[in-house]
C-alpha cells in the first residue's frame, strides 16, 4: 500500500471514461472513490476500475457505514467492502461522522449526530469495530450539518477530538464542511480548526457548496471551491505538511478539462502552503 500526497480527484461516473482514456494522467496525484459505487457490481465498471487502479493510487471513501447509527453493522456489506479495499490496496478507509440508516431503512444521506459523550462512545466503538473488520486504519470525516440532533454537551471540534481519541483513529478533514458549518452556525472556522488534533489528519477534502435559502448553505459539491476554503486548506497544510487532498465534485460537473484546471488551482495553493511548511520545518530545526 502506498500513501499518496498532493491533489487527487474524487472519481465519478460522469468522467471515469476520460480518466480511463488517460486525460488525467500526470494531472492528478491519485484518485479517491466510494466503494459503494463499485461493490457488488459486474460488467464493464469493475474492469474499467481495475485498469484505472493500475495507473493511479486509490484511496477509498465510503458513504454507508453509518458510524453514528444504532443499527448493527451489515456483515455482508463489510465482507464486500473488505474484499474491495484489499483488491484496490487502499491504505486506509474513511467514512463520515454521521448516521444514514435507522431500523433497517437506509436513507442514503449524511445525517447529523448529537455532540455528546454517549454518542462519542458509541461512534468510537463502531469505528474500532470497523477497523477490525476491514483490517486497516479508519479515518472519520467531519460532515456538513444543518441541525444538531438534540442538546449537545460540547461543540463539534471537541466532539470530533473525543471520537478520535477514544477510537484512536484518523481524521479525514473536510475544510469545506468546516466553512459551511461556520457560516450556517456562526462560528470562526479557524477556531474550529485549532481545536481538533491536527496530528491525526491523514487526508483532506475541498469542494464547493450552494445556497439552499438566505439562511442556509448546503454542501452540494456542486460549485467551484471558494477562496475562503482555499485559505483554510493552506492554513492546515502549513501546519500538517504533505497530505493527500481530494477535490470533490458531485453536481454541476464542468467539462473535464475545466475540472482538471481546478485541480491545478488547488495544487498551487497546496504547493505554496507546503513551501511555508518546509520553511517552518527548517526554522524549527536550525533556528531563524
Amino acid at each position: 500500500m502506498t500513501t499518496p500526497t498532493g491533489i487527487g480527484l474524487g472519481l465519478r461516473a460522469a468522467f471515469i471514461e476520460r480518466v480511463e482514456r488517460g486525460e488525467a494522467d500526470g494531472k492528478v496525484a491519485f484518485l479517491e472513490l466510494s466503494p459503494e459505487n463499485y461493490m457488488h457490481r459486474g460488467g464493464p465498471a469493475p474492469r474499467r476500475l481495475g485498469a484505472i487502479s493500475e495507473r493511479f493510487d486509490i484511496i477509498t471513501h465510503g458513504l454507508m457505514m453509518s458510524l453514528g447509527g444504532v443499527d448493527p453493522f451489515d456483515d455482508e456489506y463489510f465482507r464486500e467492502l473488505r474484499s474491495f479495499l484489499d483488491r484496490h490496496r487502499s491504505p486506509w478507509h474513511s467514512d463520515h461522522l454521521c448516521w444514514c440508516g435507522f431500523d433497517g431503512a437506509l436513507l442514503h444521506d449524511l445525517l447529523p449526530i448529537p455532540f455528546d459523550t454517549g454518542t462519542a462512545i458509541r461512534v468510537a466503538d463502531r469505528v474500532r469495530a470497523a477497523q477490525d473488520r476491514l483490517g486497516r486504519p479508519m479515518a472519520v470525516e467531519n460532515i456538513s450539518w444543518y441541525l444538531e440532533l438534540g442538546r449537545g454537551q460540547r461543540d463539534e471540534p471537541e466532539f470530533v477530538a473525543e471520537v478520535l481519541e477514544r477510537a484512536d483513529c484518523l481524521l479525514m478533514l473536510d475544510v469545506n464542511n468546516v466553512f459551511v458549518n461556520s457560516r450556517n452556525h456562526g462560528f470562526d472556522p479557524y477556531t474550529w480548526l485549532a481545536k481538533v488534533p491536527l496530528e491525526r489528519v491523514v487526508q483532506l477534502h475541498v469542494a464547493g457548496h450552494e445556497l439552499w435559502d438566505d439562511t442556509l448553505i448546503i454542501d452540494t459539491h456542486g460549485a467551484d471551491v471558494r477562496n475562503e476554503v482555499y485559505d483554510m486548506l493552506a492554513w492546515v497544510i502549513e501546519r500538517v505538511g504533505p497530505k493527500p487532498v481530494v477535490l470533490e465534485r458531485d453536481s454541476n460537473i464542468p467539462p473535464f478539462a475545466q475540472l482538471l484546471d481546478e485541480v491545478a488551482a488547488v495544487d498551487r495553493v497546496y504547493q505554496d502552503a507546503l513551501g511555508r511548511w518546509h520553511a517552518n520545518q527548517l526554522v524549527a530545526k536550525h533556528g531563524s
Partner: peptide, 26 residues
C-alpha cells in the same frame, strides 16, 4: 426536555430540510 428545547430553537423547518434532501436525492 433538553433535546426537545434545542430542536425547537432551530425550528421544525430545519428538520424538514433533511426530509427534502433525502427525498430529492432518492
Amino acid at each position: 426536555d433538553g433535546d426537545v428545547d434545542a430542536l425547537l430553537e432551530r425550528g421544525g423547518e430545519r428538520m424538514l430540510v433533511y426530509r427534502s434532501l433525502v427525498h430529492n436525492r432518492l
